[in-house]
Design a protein around this nucleic acid. Structure first.
Length: 303
DNA sequence: ACTTTGACCTGTGCGC
DNA sequence: TGCGCACAGGTCAAAG
């Protein structure tokens, strides 16, 4: 489910309640998540103060006063919510989206200097999420090799050209490769390609000139990626199916989606008149407009 | 070295 | 109404 804008929305929702809070009792479900909970997780959390709530790519990071950092990935269906401590009558529980206790897998009692005693609950029906624990200042294996943050200065056409050069696979797969650029998922890959007018099937390497310089379309793609992610963050993410922010609220960027989930609907590009198509690439749906995307922007000046 | 395909799970929505 | 199937925002490991 959650891509960078949704994870950022979760981060922003957690931070005011969690940063500065001291963690009390930690409860971990017996099933674990995608992987078993790391050994020592509860011990690292209990008694520690959460220093900040940070994000890298689609990962949430909780650096603790104990010198450890907890990393959390939401998978497809992971969600955090706050509840009143110890039962159904806490005030924040009222905002929770229909709690389904069988899918609650982790809960932290927390004590915040301003907000008092609360419980932070992680639920994840499909259990594709996972948690890691590492010493602050070292790294997690999940963070190794990640590409640049797409909204940072480290992401530009030059660095993208370096990673796309010679790549024969489709540009859609290139955008989803977290080593190329970190945080883009299926929705925003489709949206960015549409905004840049690039067919998802175009080989990534076709956006790089023989001299390694980025083609104009690649410059456009960088702008499109930054724009769509920034707009989605401003809108609180996309609640396509079941994404919920930590306060239980829905994002509303799905209204701004131009291709994702719109198979058969008219293209929203001004004056286009095409219809959105869906194809499957690498086992995942790609939505695009055959009329205004590609098929081959780089060869426009070719033979 | 690279790219594609399962596998991991549960829930939902659709066609029959 | 009920059943079976396709599909879902993720990543990793194995197979090509």
């Amino acid at each position: 489910m959650p891509e960078l804008p949704e994870v950022e929305t979760v981060r922003a929702g957690l931070a005011p309640m969690l940063a500065g809070a001291r963690i009390g009792l930690v409860r971990l479900g017996p099933l674990g998540l995608r992987f078993p909970f790391p050994r020592g997780l509860a011990g690292a959390l209990e008694g520690a103060v959460v220093e900040t709530v940070a994000r890298r790519a689609k990962y949430l990071l909780f650096p603790l006063s104990s010198g450890m950092t907890v990393l959390s990935h939401l998978g497809m269906t992971g969600a955090y919510r706050f509840a009143g401590r110890g039962g159904l009558d806490g005030p924040t529980r009222l905002h929770a989206p229909d709690p389904a206790p069988v899918h609650d897998h982790m809960a932290w009692d927390i004590d915040h200097p301003k907000h008092g005693a609360l419980e932070l609950v992680y639920s994840d029906p499909r259990r594709f999420g996972f948690v890691d624990l590492f010493a602050t200042g070292t790294s997690s294996r999940f963070l190794e090799g990640l590409g640049p943050e797409p909204l940072s200065n480290g992401f530009d056409a030059k660095t993208l050209a370096l990673r796309f050069k010679g790549r024969k696979g489709p540009v859609k797969a290139g955008l989803l490769d977290q080593r190329v650029v970190a945080g883009i998922g299926n929705i925003y890959a489709c949206e960015a390609l549409h905004r840049a007018g690039i067919a998802p099937t175009l080989p990534a390497g076709a956006l790089v000139g023989a001299d390694g310089a980025p083609a104009p379309a690649l410059e456009a793609l960088v702008v499109a990626v930054r724009d769509v992610l920034a707009e989605a963050i401003a809108a609180g993410g996309s609640t396509f199916r079941d994404f919920r922010a930590a306060d239980g609220g829905k994002g509303h960027f799905q209204e701004g989606l131009r291709v994702y989930g719109r198979e058969g609907a008219p293209c929203r590009a001004p004056g286009c008149g095409g219809r959105i198509a869906r194809i499957v690439q690498a086992g995942r749906s790609s939505f695009f407009c055959p009329a205004c995307q590609g098929p081959n922007p780089v060869d426009a000046s070719g033979p």
